[in-house]
């Protein structure tokens, strides 16, 4: 992995007998996903006679994932492995914000406004961003999308804010 090497403080949280924290935490998380799936599919019908019920396959896969997760966590205990890597907050935060904004805005505000605004929000995720450049490129990109998607590909989507149309 090209990520920065282990952070000392992160390591100290975990007890010493965990030799591969990356695998250990990864395995635990898979087990958590599996338990969640087991809970979420608990209301579904199981086997009836010779045929599968709606819940048979999901529960089967969830149990399998639980075991595999345990296996991965066990590897993390028994074997020396990489430490937890460093997470940054800026990229994930602004990229997610940009995506969520787009999802909320596309219906009421249309493609033009939401694409441009989302571009700028996403651009905040990097400390290399130069604002004038970002605004110009964002505007060009928005104009390009506004022609490309509805006209060339014929995909129906609102272009402009709803309150301006009605």
């Amino acid at each position: 992995m090209s990520d920065t090497p282990s952070e000392a403080p992160v390591r100290s949280i975990l007890p010493k007998w965990i030799r591969g924290p990356q695998d250990f935490i990864g395995g635990l998380a898979m087990m958590a996903v599996a338990l969640f799936a087991l809970w979420a599919s608990s209301d579904l019908q199981g086997m009836h006679g010779f045929s599968f019920g709606a819940g048979t396959a999901p529960r089967m896969f969830a149990v399998l994932l639980l075991l595999l997760g345990a296996g991965v966590a066990l590897v993390g205990v028994l074997q020396d492995g990489p430490h937890l890597s460093h997470y940054s907050w800026r990229g994930p935060l602004f990229v997610s914000a940009s995506i969520v904004f787009f999802a909320l805005a596309i219906r009421p505000l249309g493609l033009v406004v939401s694409a441009f605004a989302s571009f700028l929000i996403a651009a905040m995720g990097s400390n290399e961003t130069k604002w004038l450049e970002a605004v110009v490129v964002g505007a060009c990109l928005t104009a390009g999308c506004a022609i490309l998607f509805p006209y060339i590909l014929g995909l129906p989507m609102p272009m402009f804010p709803r309150f301006l149309i009605q």
Partner: peptide, 17 residues
Amino acid sequence: SIRSLAGACLAALASLC
């Protein structure tokens, strides 16, 4: 491009209204 975009916006809005 910004100016032409703005122009296009206005024209489209006018027709939509």
